[in-house]
């Protein structure tokens, strides 16, 4: 009996000494992490639509903002969501594919200029694309004069444009991961008569699925976040916008900000990405680290 008690008190002591303070820190960081998310949710259900005067539990709550969000014909949220999904997933696929191809070559082949290529691609991506916005606008505009599908207001040029940023940090991460796959495997396969393409598709790709997941996820998020070049290429026509560009229209203007529908839309946009993240988080830790260990 007393032994039981002794164990219990030992446990409690251990809990207080080793666990409690972790929970206290945890609570602080959790509230920091979730702070904007909570207010976003609160504002989404607050019908007054004024973030600055917001109470945590809104005084006047209701679904007004969601109704407003879905019934606005000039700001069609569902269309934006569809556009965002199409662009983000196709561009992320393109980026991952291009990055994987390049990373394979940079990891497995020894050729002149390999190190230079590695350095160059990472440096080039540091040139601020912001300033190139006008140039890109003009390029896409004149492409569109000949091929309307590649012109302003279409998704294809934007997807290709994101493909142009594929060679960069992601390539490094992929290369880092490929480097960890022992080259003995390739060599054995080569002896068995496999071509470099077969090694790539049959051996490397299946092994690298976790890191592909991470890279694609990061790409999707990066693309969803891009709004400047996106708004320049797609224009601000209601039906062409993405969620990131479109939602900003609600709080555009210095004095007439409409936080309600913005928050509602932001909440709706956040939920699927968040879910994806939670499901894939076990890949994230391993993928991010394995990709970087031998950068």
């Amino acid at each position: 009996m007393s032994q039981q008690k002794f164990i219990d008190s030992k446990r409690v002591k251990f809990w207080i000494k080793k666990i409690l303070w972790r929970h206290i820190i945890g609570a602080f960081v959790v509230s920091f992490s979730l702070f904007p998310l909570v207010w976003m949710a609160s504002a989404a259900f607050d019908v007054t639509g004024q973030l600055s005067t917001q109470q945590l539990i809104p005084l006047h709550h209701g679904l007004d903002n969601f109704v407003q969000l879905f019934s606005n014909k000039e700001k069609p949220f569902l269309t934006w969501a569809r556009n965002s999904l199409i662009i983000a997933f196709s561009a992320a696929a393109l980026q991952t594919a291009i990055g994987a191809l390049a990373a394979y070559s940079l990891s497995r082949h020894r050729f002149k200029g390999r190190k230079l290529t590695l350095t160059t691609i990472i440096i080039v991506q540091m040139f601020p694309q912001l300033l190139a916005a006008t140039t890109l606008f003009l390029i896409v505009n004149s492409l569109g004069n000949t091929f309307p599908l590649l012109g302003l207001g279409h998704q294809l040029p934007l997807i290709l444009l994101f493909g142009g940023t594929a060679l960069g940090v992601n390539t490094w991460m992929l290369k880092g991961f490929f480097d960890t796959i022992p080259s003995e495997i390739d060599e054995a396969a080569t002896i068995d008569g496999a071509s470099h393409l077969m090694i790539f598709t049959k051996i490397i790709i299946p092994l690298a699925v976790p890191v592909f997941v991470v890279i694609s996820l990061l790409s999707v998020i990066g693309i969803l976040n891009e709004y400047l070049i996106t708004s320049v290429i797609l224009g601000l026509d209601g039906k062409n916008m993405t969620v990131a560009v479109g939602l900003q229209q609600f709080i555009y203007g210095q004095y007439g900000k409409n936080w309600g529908p913005f928050a509602a839309g932001a909440l709706l946009a956040t939920v699927p990405v968040l879910t994806l993240f939670i499901f894939l988080q076990k890949y994230l830790v391993s993928g991010l680290v394995s990709g970087s260990t031998k950068g």
Partner: peptide
């Protein structure tokens, strides 16, 4: 009827002279 882009004068000062 087209909504303007979000960038300054939307490149008008460059697009105009280019005829587009």
């Amino acid at each position: 009827i087209v909504a303007k882009c979000g960038l300054g004068d939307c490149g008008l000062s460059k697009l105009g002279p280019a005829g587009v």
